[in-house]
Design a protein around this nucleic acid. Structure first.
Lengths: 122, 122
DNA sequence: CAGTTATATATCTGAGTGGTTATACATAGA
DNA sequence: TCTATGTATAACCACTCAGATATATAACTG
């Protein structure tokens, strides 16, 4: 995660999301000097976030998903936390702040869920 | 994300996962001086990752899930990427009975993988 | 009130880092 | 071979930042 702290590095990762790119391509889109990009790529490589593949005199850098998986895993326990927050919010919106507990009655079927992007979990 | 780059800060966040804690409690578990902890808490607060709640002369710091949600959202597009990877791997292990000259792709040197740990939450 | 406890702030410092320019290395093409 | 191109490395610099110590602020206790 320290590796992704640098915004330039996140930008590189974002650019590589759609497939491998050569160094110069990255340089063209990044408004950084070539050595700077190479340096970032080295850091990313040593962190396992990208792999290189030589192609003539170009080096194609490709994203490796594993470290991002790790990040997602770290994030997972917190996921539950904000699920609770959302639930609380929902309840709050549904039946107005009634301080005394309802008898386990499930909240009225709410048809429209605005703004809340709910991720499917399967 | 820059905020979570510092390991100490991630540790604090982890400690706050189970509920609000006072500063001294954090200090006790963190092997950091109290000012250091306070400084980190300030950074976390200014990044919206925690909120404070005064309680007598203690300050209870509580985690706020929103920024972590943002992180998860940023991560989402990549999720699909490694899903593909896993699918490919699955297909490779399950039913592909070595297709003859299907693509022009040279059979990647697959080093004998000893029982790939399949992390899937079904 | 004085004294103790809990936390925040001030200030400093050494280490790390993102960026640059200059240069080396490697490969392709003449 | 020599030259051009793509990339990596070296050396350096400005700056940030995590940590420490010392001190200030605030609240409880006697």
């Amino acid at each position: 995660m320290e590796v992704l702290a640098a915004p330039s590095r996140r930008e590189i990762v974002d650019l590589l999301r759609d497939g491998a790119l050569a160094v110069n391509t990255l340089v063209a889109r990044l408004d950084l000097t070539q050595p700077a990009v190479s340096k970032h790529l080295r850091v990313l490589r040593e962190a396992g976030l990208v792999r290189v593949q030589a192609d003539g005199r170009q080096r194609l850098y490709e994203l490796r998903p594993e470290p991002l998986m790790e990040l997602a895993e770290w994030l997972e326990p917190y996921r539950e936390m904000w699920r609770e927050s959302l639930d609380r919010l929902e309840r709050h919106l549904d039946d107005v702040p009634v301080p005394h507990n309802s008898t386990g009655r499930p909240p009225a079927p709410v048809p429209s869920e605005p703004t809340v992007t709910r991720k499917k979990q399967s």
